[in-house]
Amino acid sequence: MSVLRKICLGYVLVLLAAASLNYVPGLTDDQGLAFGIFALDIFDDALHVASALWALAAAVISQRAARAFLLIFGTLYLGDGLFGFFTGYGYLDLGIFTNASEGMSFTLFRVLANLPHLALGAFALWAGLRVERD
């Protein structure tokens, strides 16, 4: 199995773990914030599960499918994380449509809230562009 396909399998695990955060006792506080930083709702869970299934399909199908997943997923998630700095919400979970903008902020809280999508997106995009180029 190629490195890109293994990376996709890694994304399956990470995304399923993200989808499960609300359901593991002790990981959310009294306000429903995971790790006291961000709230996850049914839209977030659906997004993470759908993305995990997409990553699994890409890993199983082919090297080309794995690269396509990493490039598209990486672009979407990195953009979502960056967008979070401008509004406080992302577009992938429809948060920009259901919440009023909180304005641009680079506070530690906002950075930590957007870091998962920034990191997942940036790494996926890097891997899609640089790993195992034919």
Rank of each mutant, 00 (worst) to 15 (best):
R5V: 01
A59V: 04
I61Q: 11
L33K: 14
L4G: 03
L27Q: 02
G74F: 02
G74I: 00
L115N: 05
V60Q: 15
A113R: 14
F109A: 12
A68E: 10
F97T: 12
R67Y: 03
T98F: 10
F38G: 13
R64P: 03
G10T: 07
N22H: 06
L115M: 14
F69N: 04
T28D: 05
V3E: 09
A68G: 12
V49F: 01
L47Y: 10
R130K: 15
L40Q: 13
V131A: 08
R67K: 13
G81S: 05
L78F: 15
L78C: 04
M1N: 09
A52I: 04
S20V: 09
L4Y: 02
D93Y: 09
G36Y: 09
L115K: 05
A68L: 15
L120A: 13
G36N: 08
S20K: 01
D41T: 03
T28K: 12
N114H: 04
L112C: 09
R67D: 05
E132T: 08
F43C: 02
L9F: 13
P116V: 11
G84Q: 03
D93C: 12
T75L: 15
M1C: 08
G10I: 01
E132D: 13
A46D: 08
L125K: 03
V49K: 01
Q63E: 15
N114E: 12
I7Q: 01
A19G: 07
A100Y: 10
L112W: 10
G103H: 04
